[in-house]
């Protein structure tokens, strides 16, 4: 089924099309949310919100960008909103007083040495990425985990190519400092 055809069917509230739309994009949306929130439950709630928002506002999709770009944009904005909300909730819950480590991935499992080392490295890299300013974090996630080109990142973030270059440049320099400190 062509993308435009799928969109038309979604607009027509076709149940099969809605399910197809979900099946095509669920992994993409869930992974972006997971990388942004670093927690499976939050990522699932955010993914639910992303699909509900996308389906309810599909009539506003004009087809100027690819459907995936449009969905990435909704996912990134939802992820950023959840992050802000999490910060407020953490502050109200006084989590910072007990020094809760909110960055450790919840799916890290003990296994063979290499797997363990991979999990530890991933946890450290995730921790460093989570501590970046929101826009830098978004750009790094889209580049590193979603393997989007600079042009695609610019479209998702509604910014210029040079701004993406600059964001990633600063993000990587910040990450170098943060990771070096964490690895010592």
């Amino acid at each position: 089924m062509k993308e435009s055809e799928l969109i038309e069917k979604i607009k027509g509230d076709d149940g099969t099309a809605l399910r197809t739309f979900y099946e095509i994009y669920k992994d993409m949306v869930y992974n972006v949310c997971y990388r942004m929130l670093n927690n499976r439950q939050d990522a699932e709630d955010a993914t639910q919100d992303v699909f509900v928002k996308a389906i309810r506002s599909v009539h506003r999709f004009r087809g100027n960008a690819k459907l995936s770009t449009w969905l990435y944009r909704i996912a990134v904005n939802t992820g950023l909103n959840y992050t802000r909300r999490k910060k407020i909730v953490a502050w109200l819950s006084l989590d910072f007083l007990v020094g809760k480590d909110e960055y450790f991935p919840d799916n890290a499992q003990a296994g063979p040495d290499l797997e363990l080392e991979k999990n530890e490295s991933e946890a450290l890299v995730q921790q460093a990425i989570q501590s970046l300013p929101p826009r830098q974090r978004t750009a790094v996630i889209l580049q590193r985990y979603e393997e989007l080109s600079y042009k695609e990142i610019a479209e998702v973030m509604k910014t210029s190519l040079s701004a993406v270059e600059s964001l990633l440049h600063h993000a990587k320099d910040n990450l170098t400092e943060k990771l070096t400190a964490l690895l010592k």
Binding site: Y22, D27, R35, E44, T47, Q48, S121, E122, L179, L183
Partner: peptide, 26 residues
Amino acid sequence: LLSGAWNLSQPIRRVQPSPLLWNKIS
């Protein structure tokens, strides 16, 4: 150190949402 952590954590692993998620959405 950096190269070890950065390359080991190459994000090959993709996470999957719960199979019940679509039910919640619908």
